[in-house]
């Protein structure tokens, strides 16, 4: 059965070309300016990271030496000795779990809100966004008493609360996506005889994939970077990278370990973000 699909991301998009060389010449100063600005921004963003990069492999770096005096893997060894390996795996798992719960829930909520299928949408919106306004500590302290009384397993409690904290982000991202989503494609597919599941799998999800990926990324970050809820609700059974970073950073002389742990903590989101850049590129025609 033939279903007309919207143009896929693989279709190359060719920008309209300016044809006169005069036009191109007149743009050159602007282009130079833009390049310089981009370079300046890159330096501004990257320069603060340079000491972090140096500390990664600095065994000894005392004031006032400009560069580390002894290079080595002490920081890496110390991070591993404090359980950075398993903590990394746990953080990854936690991020993915929160993402797996909060992304579909956010999408469902956003769809319902976008198509006016909920009564009192303003109130529902307010409830969905409430976690942003609520201090994490108050929520964690109060909810943990409840979770303990209900005998909810600690890890389930952590995923549950972090998912609620991720919901405003996933809902908002998906709400924007549904706002510009053209239901006409789905109606057309239905008219042409596609089943509901076929429409979902072959029209709806592909069209919303970039937004879903963005919202999954944001939800991942919530689980990946949390310290307070993981510790307070998780009860110390589940030691993650942020717990190691926070405790190491609260001491003196831990610069090298903190650098190793921080870079470890930055890498997965960075890789995901780059992946997102490729995956979630806007398909032509302004759909997203």
């Amino acid at each position: 059965m033939a279903v007309t699909l919207p143009p896929g991301p693989r279709t190359p998009w060719t920008p309209p070309r300016g044809d006169g060389s005069a036009l191109r010449i007149s743009r050159t100063p602007g282009r130079v300016g833009r390049t310089l600005l981009a370079l300046a921004l890159a330096v501004w963003f990257l320069l603060p990271l340079a000491p972090l990069g140096l500390w990664l492999f600095a065994d000894r770096w005392s004031y006032p030496a400009a560069l580390p005096e002894a290079w080595g893997l002490d920081g890496v060894r110390s991070a591993l000795a404090q359980g950075a390996g398993p903590a990394f795996a746990r953080s990854l798992g936690l991020g993915l779990a929160v993402s797996a719960v909060a992304t579909p829930l956010g999408a469902l909520a956003a769809r319902a809100l976008a198509y006016h299928r909920v009564p009192f949408p303003a109130a529902v919106n307010a409830v969905l966004f409430a976690p942003l306004a609520l201090p994490a500590f108050a929520a964690a302290f109060g909810l943990n008493v409840l979770l303990l009384r209900l005998q909810v397993p600690p890890l389930a409690g952590v995923i549950l609360i972090l998912s609620v904290y991720a919901l405003p982000y996933t809902t908002y991202t998906m709400r924007v996506a549904y706002g510009s989503h053209d239901l006409g494609f789905e109606e057309e597919a239905r008219t042409l005889g596609a089943t509901r599941w076929q429409v979902l799998a072959r029209v709806h999800l592909p069209l919303l994939a970039p937004a879903l990926a963005r919202s999954a990324f944001l939800a991942f970050l919530i689980g990946w970077s949390d310290y307070l809820i993981t510790l307070l609700v998780g009860g110390g059974a589940f030691i993650t990278v942020p717990m190691l970073v926070a405790s190491a950073a609260s001491g003196t002389g831990n610069d090298s370990v903190v650098a190793v742990l921080s870079v470890t903590a930055v890498l997965p989101p960075l890789i995901l973000l780059l992946g997102l850049g490729f995956f979630a590129r806007k398909p032509p025609g302004g759909l997203s």
Binding site: N144, L148, Y227, L232, I239, A248, S250
Partner: peptide
């Protein structure tokens, strides 16, 4: 269990006491 501040541990204990 490494904590950044002993108060973090206290808070866990206090919620347990309350529950």
């Amino acid at each position: 269990v490494p904590v950044a501040d002993t108060k973090d541990a206290m808070n866990r204990v206090l919620t347990e006491v309350q529950a």
